[in-house]
Structure formats: structure tokens, C-alpha cells
């Protein structure tokens, strides 16, 4: 830190200089940099240790989060169903939630869209929406819980993901199903195989008995009532069955990767 201070030009406001430097960074880096800095600041206040020590605190937090992934996988009971609710309990209006405004939500033309299926599957053919709509569907009224803390009850209808994985001949011994989406900046998220095979995990085509509207992820979202909201990708373009941990939009920024509920 001392060396860094000496490098600064006398008479130049340090905080302004820092602001300019931060502005030149790409968006994601900036977000992580700011978050890191702020938590470091708080830790320094608390323990009086210097900044180099606190970088290892961030490393420690990451390790604990990985440990928590393991604990949650251990706690996960494939037979435990998320509580279901009567239709009268549905939250109206159901909130639109994303890291962008509704105007910026992907606008997908049904006829141009195909679901790409990749990785450890026997049949890698892409699926049109028309083909997917022919698969048997089930409805669930469950609680969507956001990582922010709020929750809302919604009605989702679609094909259980495990049925689809069977149809495409997926290797269900693989570790993850990784989804890529059309959201701006490219949303993606990994889903551990045991959660993917849970009876209530669904390829969702309808919300409240109507074709899934743009706000909730048209043409297809993945509804996982045993996970926090950000693990329920919308505007899905492709799914890949894989043994590799490919990271995710929020997971890479520090949200716990398992995030089971």
C-alpha cells in the first residue's frame, strides 16, 4: 500500500483517480472490484488487519462457499417436494425481475427459436417450440424465492426436465446441465444433475395457464422450485449435459453456486 501511495502524483485527488481507473475497467470486473473493496474496507475496520491479509479473507469466503455447496448437496433430498399452494395464493402481479429493465428483455420470435441440446446426450437434435409443446406437461403452483429475500407464488406449466433428459438420452451420471440464455450480456447457469432430475424441475412453457410471456422468459424457462430464483434461467437457448463446471452469470460474481432452498 505504501508503495502504491508513492506512485500517486502529488496534487491529484486519489479518490478521483481511482474512480477514473475503475471507469476504464469492463463492467463485470468493475462490479467485483467494488464489491471486493467494500468488504475489504469493512473487514479492515473490524480487525485492523491490512489489505493484503484481507485478500486472503476473500479467498477464505470462496472456500467456505464451496464447502456450503457440499453441505447443501448432502442436505438435498430428491424426494422432498417444494410445498405447493392453491391457485388463490398466486401473487398478482407476479414481479418481473432481472438485472435489466423489461424494455431490455430478450424479444424472441417463436419461429426463429430452437432449443439446442449439447454435450453428453445421445440425440443432439435441436427442438422447435412446436415440437416441445407436444410433450406431456404438468402444472405446479410453487413459491419462487429470490436471492434478495423476497418471494412470490406463481403457476408454471411445462415438461419435467427429467422426462426430456430421458427422451434425448442424456447421461444422467454427468454432474451438470448447463443452460445458456438470450438475456443481454449472456446469462448462463449450471444446475447440478440431482436437482435437474428432481420431479418438480420443469421446462416451463406457460405461466398462469397462458403461453409464457416475454417478462417471464418466453419461449422457455427452467423452473427449479428447490433453488433460488437466479438458478431458474429464462429465455433459454441451449442446454448442455456436462461434467465440467462452466460457471454462471451470478455464480461467477459470488452468489453461492448450489443455492438450494
Amino acid at each position: 500500500m505504501g508503495r502504491l501511495r508513492n506512485l500517486l502524483i502529488p496534487g491529484v485527488d486519489k479518490s478521483l483517480l481511482l474512480k477514473d481507473a475503475v471507469k476504464t475497467m469492463p463492467d463485470l470486473t468493475r462490479r467485483r472490484f467494488i464489491s471486493g473493496g467494500a468488504s475489504l474496507g469493512a473487514l479492515t475496520l473490524l480487525t485492523g488487519c491490512d489489505v493484503t491479509d484481507s485478500f486472503s479473507a476473500e479467498e477464505m469466503l470462496k472456500q467456505v462457499s464451496k464447502f456450503n455447496d457440499g453441505v447443501q448437496a448432502w442436505m438435498f433430498n430428491p424426494d422432498a417436494m417444494a410445498p405447493t399452494f392453491p391457485e388463490s395464493a398466486i401473487t398478482k402481479p407476479f414481479p418481473f425481475n432481472a438485472y435489466y429493465s423489461l424494455d431490455e428483455a430478450p424479444e424472441i420470435e417463436a419461429k426463429d427459436w430452437k432449443l439446442e441440446v449439447r454435450g453428453l446426450v445421445e440425440n443432439k437434435k435441436s427442438w422447435t417450440l412446436e415440437e416441445l409443446y407436444k410433450l406431456p406437461q404438468v402444472k405446479q403452483v410453487t413459491r419462487h424465492i429470490c436471492v434478495e429475500g423476497w418471494s412470490a407464488i406463481g403457476s408454471w406449466t411445462g415438461t419435467p426436465l427429467r422426462d426430456f433428459l430421458k427422451i434425448v438420452g442424456a447421461d444422467t451420471r454427468a454432474k451438470y446441465v448447463w443452460f445458456q440464455c438470450a438475456d443481454k450480456d449472456g446469462y448462463n447457469s449450471p444446475l447440478d444433475m440431482r436437482s435437474a432430475l428432481h420431479a418438480q424441475t420443469q421446462m416451463t412453457f406457460k405461466f398462469g395457464d397462458e403461453i409464457l410471456p416475454r417478462a417471464y422468459g418466453f419461449p422457455m424457462k427452467i423452473r427449479v422450485p428447490t433453488k433460488l430464483g437466479f438458478k431458474n434461467p429464462k429465455y433459454v437457448l441451449s442446454m448442455e449435459v456436462t461434467n465440467d463446471y462452466k460457471g454462471g452469470f451470478w455464480e461467477d460474481q459470488g452468489y453461492n453456486s448450489f443455492s438450494g432452498s
Binding site: 474496507g41 469493512a42 469466503l61 436471492v147 459470488g254
Partner: peptide, 28 residues
Amino acid sequence: ASPLFGFTFSSSITLGGWLGGGLLWHFA
């Protein structure tokens, strides 16, 4: 990130810098 009441806590007394950081600290 999602206040229950009409107030939030000043960032000078919170830990983590943002929601993701706060969650990491809380669950550690």
C-alpha cells in the same frame, strides 16, 4: 437487498459491499 420495512441500513455499518458479499459473510 429487499427491505421488510421502509428503511435500509447505511452502507457504513454493513459488511460485504453488495448482496453477494453479504451472503458470503453470512453463510461463513
